[in-house]
Design a protein around this nucleic acid. Structure first.
Lengths: 352, 352
DNA sequence: CTGTTAGCGCCTTCAG
DNA sequence: CTGAAGGCGCTAACAG
């Protein structure tokens, strides 16, 4: 990029030694006498020398780079994870390369290839579809360090993820415990085959002795709050006599909240609402959101740790390891249990 | 990363030609007869060949990589920009390398050096401090393509940025037009020397014939909603008889909204509120936020376009060019003008 | 203690 | 139409 970056050879020319000596000196080899070293280091500073990492990588066969594939960068929770990942990597001397799949397997595959071609030392992947991992598996078999950031049902890849199933289950438990029987589930993941949250929801229902009713599934057909807004509005218009709604992420919950406001449905009095992710804005929502929380930083750290473990394993990769981050429920106002009473008996309502 | 990635030489061995021929064939050179080419391409596919970009970069002297330095990845508007940048770059065959400065000049400098060492073809920088650009300027002089994503007061660097000054000005104009005279300004940028918004605010005041009162400046001492929450609570307790507040970003506005709720101050009836950035959540806030909007995607595209222009300029870099993205005001409920009346006379209040 | 040689994987130039 | 030679910037092996 700079038109003429300084090379070892340039420093060599100035100091009257050979490029090799400069290389050794700059890396502090004791083979070079202190005095020569100082002279070389001084010259390097003066010439504003920085080693060419691409040349280094070619010989060392490592790039000190990790690739991260995100689904969509709009979801704040992914952003938060990306940030923690960048930080964790930076302190360990790795750089982060970013790609987005937009929930599209073809783009995910493209990103995989780009990263491979760029010789990244490892990859972190928010797979678009948890069921469709067959484009990733061969890479692991070929020896590529890869850590999935979503659940792999088959357990054949390394993985660090929040326990989505458990998260949806505790959220459902909470609503069931509050006396709700008709609990709707707002989720965009099913289309992509990401069924963990749905399963957790069903498990929670089961435990409460509530039959699963597919009419209570609402699919926004997209991942934005706007989509959720429309879908929930349509759903509410159907008058399914729902008293609670579990949204599979907070952005969708925001849309739901808006739909309720439009239709004069009071949250939590008329409808108890629970989200998922606990993004920063959830606490600042019109009705502060009860939501499933998990440590995105903790998750990121665990994922980076595992990835570096794989990267630094000399021979064959160790057996895949699965790590689940345990979620907790953060109870705020939107579920109606904040002030003790059952949501049905009416709480403070949605006043501001 | 894969223990043994396929090389040109491997394909050569299999097809009984030389590595050179393989290289030409794979790049579709007409110098190689169609039939040989097909044979080579087939072998490459079978061996799952991908070119080693590190090696390619060493000879081509370009990495097809762009470095992006963000201040803090928490601000959703930066994320949104990052996403658009990634997308713009990807369609042009460039990869994105990400680093975060956490608003710290030392870290910003580190990131600059890392990118330089990694031979990125160009850099996009959300500089932490718009006044402190002296660590960046020499790079431009050395011929590095760099586009700043914030204003450079001295106009010596290429830059694509929202017109912060203008944004704050139109927001202030709006509040002045609504009859407000005591307008507070909530801003975390001044400490870092990012004064554009403050200037716009003062200009708006001036035009309205309102004297600037430093007691109406509230500094959250940080960039989070929580900090704003605390700072605004303290400010409101001082009873400065403020009727309006301009927040320098939406996250801060959320915190302010929360402080108002805590203290029973109704928005917009008792206090008109205007934010900045128009992040997705703003429309879903307890009181939908009136805020300064700008096309983050448009900004990103312009920045990427300009950067690639610089990258593809053969000799000396052209003169630096400044591009401002024009902001607009999105009027929602928090400023009290939505339903026609002056905020002071009471609007719908903050009901939900 | 330092210089020389070779090679990482690829591309370009020049021979054949 | 294809092969051989040289080099990108750096490091590793071996000489001297």
């Amino acid at each position: 990029m700079a038109r003429q970056p300084t090379r070892l050879k340039d420093i060599a020319a100035v100091t009257g030694v050979t490029a090799n000596t400069v290389s050794l000196a700059l890396r502090g080899s004791s083979r070079i006498p202190q005095e020569t070293r100082d002279r070389i280091v001084a010259a390097a500073r003066k010439l504003n020398y920085l080693p060419n990492q691409v040349a280094q990588s070619l010989v060392s066969r490592e790039t000190k780079t990790v690739g991260l594939i995100l689904t969509s960068i709009v979801n704040p929770i992914l952003t938060q994870a990306a940030r923690a990942i960048e930080r964790e990597l930076a302190v360990r001397g790795y750089s982060l390369m970013l790609a987005a799949s937009e929930n599209d397997i073809a783009k995910e595959t493209d990103a995989l290839n780009v990263f491979r071609s760029r010789q990244v030392d490892g990859m972190l992947i928010y797979a678009a579809s948890h069921g469709a991992l067959d484009h990733i598996r061969p890479l692991r078999r070929a020896g590529y360090p890869i850590v999935l950031l979503v659940d792999d049902p088959t357990r054949r890849l390394d993985m660090v993820s929040v326990d989505d199933r458990r998260g949806a289950e505790i959220a459902t438990d909470h609503l069931v415990g509050l006396g709700h029987r008709r609990i709707a589930f707002l989720d965009a993941g099913s289309q992509l085959g990401n069924l963990e949250k749905l399963e957790g929801y069903r498990k929670g229902l089961d435990k409460g002795g509530i039959a699963f009713d597919p009419r209570l599934l609402v699919d926004p057909g997209g991942h934005s709050a706007a989509r959720a807004h429309a879908a929930v509005a349509a759903f509410l218009a159907r008058r399914e006599r729902t008293t609670a709604l579990l949204a599979s992420n907070d952005l969708l919950a925001f849309g739901a909240l808006r739909a309720c406001r439009d239709l004069g449905v009071s949250v939590p009095r008329d409808l108890a609402l629970v989200g998922f992710d606990d993004i920063e804005a959830s606490d600042y929502a019109p009705v502060p959101l009860t939501t499933v929380h998990y440590g995105a930083d903790e998750l990121s750290k665990a994922a980076v740790d595992r990835l570096l473990e794989l990267i630094n394993t000399p021979g064959r990769l160790p057996r895949p390891k699965q790590t689940f981050i345990e979620p907790t429920l953060v109870v705020r106002e939107s579920c109606g249990s904040r002030d003790g009473g059952r949501a049905q008996r009416g709480g403070r309502g949605a006043t501001r």
